[in-house]
């Protein structure tokens, strides 16, 4: 028996919004520690990793490990039927071929349940090594979304360059060139408005705008986003899911031949 109840159901709605453009199907791996998802996009350019810890749920029961393969487009359609303040419960029997989503209004006066077929997905897991990144940049998630949206008008790629002076995002194309520089904030009223840079060595990498734009669908999840970069390794774009976990996107850089 698997059952996970989340009073703050809108977090789950937001997680799905942040996945559905990148992935069409994926497996949710459930264990007594929580729920995890790891999947590559169809082109194998990026990888998404989601963690929802058991202690972040208001009730969590997972008697035996199970992997629930889901069509994320369908899951997203179902979650869109939940109101933002609904309590969401996910339920499945052991070795079941379907999953049930229950949405309760806060006053318990409306209860809806939706059943969805599970899929048998043969998904390969990739081992992500622990990495000490050369540069770790934290900035407001909305600012990052805006930068990527603005620079996407210029070309297909964004160059992210981090030095001790700050971080520079650049794009070039037929209409011209765009550069956006962010310096580390000296002082801010709110922590979530800060730009912080931890840098061991300068690093410059080039990434596809198309993917960065899809990652920014997770902006609704968290006030801040963390970008981790090292030379010639994938970029990590991380959004926290409240205090219960994270959505991490890994993006392979573009490489000069």
């Amino acid at each position: 028996m698997f059952e996970a109840r989340l009073v703050q159901g809108n977090l789950l709605k937001k997680v799905l919004e942040s996945l559905k453009d990148l992935l069409t199907e994926a497996s949710w791996d459930c264990a007594d520690t929580g729920i995890q998802l790891q999947a590559m996009d169809n082109s194998h350019v990026s990888l998404v990793s989601v963690q929802l810890r058991a202690d972040g749920f208001d009730k969590f029961r997972c008697d035996r490990q199970l992997s629930m393969g889901m069509n994320l487009t369908s899951m997203s359609k179902i979650l869109r039927c939940a109101a933002n303040d609904d309590i969401i419960t996910i339920k499945a029997q052991d070795q079941a071929d379907n999953v049930t989503f229950v949405f309760e209004s806060p006053n318990q006066e409306k209860v809806a349940d939706y059943e969805m077929k599970l899929m048998n997905l043969d998904q390969e897991h990739l081992g992500i090594p622990e990495t000490d990144y050369a540069a770790v940049i934290k900035l407001p998630a909305a600012e990052f979304q805006r930068i990527i949206k603005d620079l996407s008008q210029f070309g297909e790629s964004v160059v992210i360059s981090c030095t001790k002076e700050g971080v520079k995002f650049s794009a070039a194309g037929d209409i011209g060139v765009g550069n956006i520089k962010l310096a580390q904030t000296a002082s801010v009223d709110k922590e979530e408005e800060a730009v912080t840079i931890e840098m061991q060595e300068p690093v410059t990498l080039t990434f596809a705008c198309r993917y960065l734009n899809m990652f920014t669908k997770a902006t609704c999840l968290a006030p801040q986003v963390t970008l981790s970069m090292s030379p010639e390794v994938p970029l990590v774009v991380e959004y926290k899911i409240g205090d219960m976990g994270h959505v991490r996107y890994y993006l392979a850089p573009k490489i000069e031949d």
Partner: peptide, 14 residues
């Protein structure tokens, strides 16, 4: 010429 890398060239299959 610049080419897009693949994520599975960076991470090992488990």
């Amino acid at each position: 010429k610049i080419t897009q890398g693949r994520i599975d060239n960076f991470f090992q299959r488990e």
